[in-house]
Every structure is written in structure tokens, then in C-alpha cells.
Design a protein around this nucleic acid. Structure first.
Length: 194
DNA sequence: AGGAAGATCTACT
DNA sequence: GTAGATCTTCCTA
């Protein structure tokens, strides 16, 4: 299977814009010669010092460091016993990231079910911690380049999403959110978390 | 060395 | 709808 990967410059923009445009794209996890992949159906945007919910709110630390790095890299860290997957945005020096919150499973569904130890398709990847487990994503993939052919973690073009299909709301599970909605999802998709 | 926090998940009512 | 479990990183001493 051949996929056209998103170029680096795709990520070199405002996180909210990248978050919207990541909807309908394919997240690919390569393991040996197998692939596990799902369509991105839900995202959230995070900023820097003006965003109290951001890891980069208080400047750099080991986790947020990568948010200041070049765009198009995988930022992975643990919260509440779950690995969360983000894509870095904005040019080097400016912090920004998009959290991938939910996928619609496309390839390797059997394998994902094994990883998650469940038979329920609907509950396979409908949450940030669930999708990382389903695709066996962990700290070892931290810093991967989404746009490189050699990466084990990639994002490719898949489906076009119309403006009318996109819904938005405030971010979920965030104690101090901003006033503007920064969560984006595909309306009427069954795999969006509630 | 120890404790607290955190962008969650599951199971239960 | 909510309580409890779970684990890694960071902060303070």
C-alpha cells in the first residue's frame, strides 16, 4: 500500500488550523512489515504561554521541549497511566501542538483488538489513551518525524472533509481552558469520544 | 527519596 | 455521572 505523506510545511502553521486539517487524514503505525492505521476524527490544539492547559505554559521542560522544536514531530507522554500522541506545530522556537484524540480504525483492526484486549470496534480507538494502546505507541516513538518515509509513525492524505462536516467545542478534561473552542471533530462519526 | 499532579479509562450505580 | 485505579515526570528536601 502506498500513501502520500503530509509534507513538513503542513505542520508549520497555527495549531488550530493544523488540528482542523488533520481531520480525515490517516495515522499510520508501521511495525515490521505490517501496518496499523486509522483515520483521524478528533483533535485538539494547544498553544504556549498564553494557554494555561498547555505543557509549554510554564516554559520548557522535558515534555514540552519538543513543542519548541521543528513542526511535524511526534510528542508522546504519559498522563493518568495513558500515553498521549501529539503532533508539533509552528516553526522552531514557537511552541504549539495538536493532540490526536480519536481515530476510526482502517487497517489492522484484528491486531488493534489484540493490543487492546477487546472485541468492541466502537471502543477501540475512541479516546487519546485508547488509540495509542491500539497502535502500540509509547515513549520509544517520541520525536518521530510524521513526514519521513523511514518513520514508524506517519500521517498521510486519506479523505477530504467538507467544512460542513466539522464540529467544534471546548477541550475535554482540561481544568483551565481558554474561551475559544479548540477541539475539532468530524460530525456524526461514531468514533469521536463523548 | 517521596509526594503530588495530570490533555484518562473502566466499571459501577 | 462519578469514584477509583493507574504510572510517569517533575518538584522539593
Amino acid at each position: 500500500m502506498k500513501f502520500k505523506l503530509l509534507p513538513k510545511k503542513f505542520y508549520n502553521r497555527d495549531p488550530a488550523l493544523v488540528a482542523v486539517q488533520l481531520l480525515g487524514k490517516l495515522l499510520i503505525r508501521r511495525i515490521d512489515k505490517k501496518i496499523l492505521a486509522g483515520m483521524i476524527v478528533e483533535t485538539e490544539a494547544y498553544y504556549g504561554k498564553e494557554d494555561p492547559a498547555s505543557r509549554a505554559y510554564k516554559g520548557k521542560n522535558k515534555i514540552s521541549e519538543l513543542m519548541f522544536d521543528e513542526p511535524g514531530r511526534a510528542l508522546i507522554y504519559m498522563v493518568h497511566a495513558n500515553w498521549l500522541l501529539n503532533a508539533t506545530c509552528l516553526p522552531k522556537g514557537q511552541p504549539g501542538a495538536v493532540l490526536i484524540r480519536a481515530l476510526e480504525p482502517i487497517y489492522g483492526i484484528k491486531e488493534m483488538m489484540k493490543n487492546r484486549n477487546t472485541n468492541s470496534l466502537l471502543n477501540l480507538t475512541n479516546g487519546p489513551g485508547k488509540l495509542t494502546k491500539a497502535l502500540s505507541i509509547d515513549k520509544s516513538l517520541h520525536g518521530s518525524y510524521f513526514y519521513k518515509k523511514s518513520s514508524f509513525l506517519q500521517i498521510a492524505y486519506f479523505r477530504d472533509i467538507e467544512k460542513e462536516e466539522i464540529g467544534f467545542s471546548k477541550r475535554i478534561g482540561v481544568s483551565k481552558d481558554l474561551e475559544i473552542p479548540l477541539r475539532f471533530f468530524i460530525k456524526q462519526n461514531k468514533f469521536v469520544s463523548k
